[in-house]
């Protein structure tokens, strides 16, 4: 991947140091946190029984990842090395709690459905991993790009899983008052609503991702 590290939109000397597009592509596609790195799947399996839950969870992770990446990056030259992980967790936790308080105040129903899983983003390995592996070594702007990329890389597969599970588990998908129904010929499959359903959909999704991406990961091993 190092051979195409020039940024196509802003050039190598640009705002994002020429790494913007590469970073974006890595987070969303080539090193997708869910489908390729298989990180943070606890929450991915738990909240994906409905499309709306998946989208809010994706938005939460995007917000936290961007916020923590930005602040870890801004402080990267000042964070004492020995306590850097504690500092990262403190920053991540702050953003997670902020999001959770906001949900509880303005989207009570959603907050009730997601239950403990918003709070558990604090321990999500994607957020911690990006702070430790990326934001600590890179300037703020490109760290924001990395946060956005990984937020999308987590949120989009989550939304796909949520869509399929709700469609086949409930026979219909509802979002913002808009519904897609399969019709009366379809008998809703309870399995899709339960946790094992997430494993099946997630497994198939990983397979599709790897086929589309080509097998350069095997070479990497």
């Amino acid at each position: 991947m190092s051979n195409n590290s020039s940024c196509m939109t802003c050039g190598s000397g640009g705002l994002c140091g020429g790494k913007g597009l590469v970073t974006l592509k890595e987070g969303v596609w080539t090193s997708n946190p869910l489908a390729i790195q298989v990180l943070g799947i606890c929450s991915a399996l738990a909240v994906t029984n409905k499309l709306s839950n998946s989208l809010v969870m994706g938005a939460a992770l995007l917000f936290v990842c961007v916020g923590s990446n930005l602040f870890v990056s801004l402080l990267r030259k000042h964070i004492p090395h020995r306590i850097r992980m504690i500092v990262e967790v403190a920053i991540i936790a702050t953003f997670v709690i902020l999001f959770n308080e906001f949900l509880k105040a303005y989207y009570w129903e959603m907050s009730k459905q997601l239950g403990p899983y918003v709070g558990l983003i604090i321990t999500n390995c994607i957020v911690m991993g990006r702070a430790e592996a990326f934001a600590l070594q890179n300037p703020p702007l490109v760290s924001i790009v990395d946060g956005v990329a990984n937020g999308i890389g987590y949120g989009v597969p989550l939304a796909i899983i949520g869509f399929l599970r709700e469609l086949f588990g409930a026979g219909q998908v509802a979002l913002f008052g808009w519904t897609l129904e399969l019709g009366s010929w379809y008998t809703p499959n309870q399995l899709m609503v339960l946790a094992p359903g997430a494993f099946f959909v997630f497994g198939v999704l990983i397979a599709i991702f790897n086929v589309l991406k080509g097998d350069d990961t095997e070479e990497g091993n």
Binding site: H78, I79, P80, I83, I86, V87, A90, I91
Partner: peptide
């Protein structure tokens, strides 16, 4: 420095 950093961040 480490202690001060932790206190301020906290």
């Amino acid at each position: 420095y480490t202690i001060c950093f932790a206190i301020i961040l906290g």
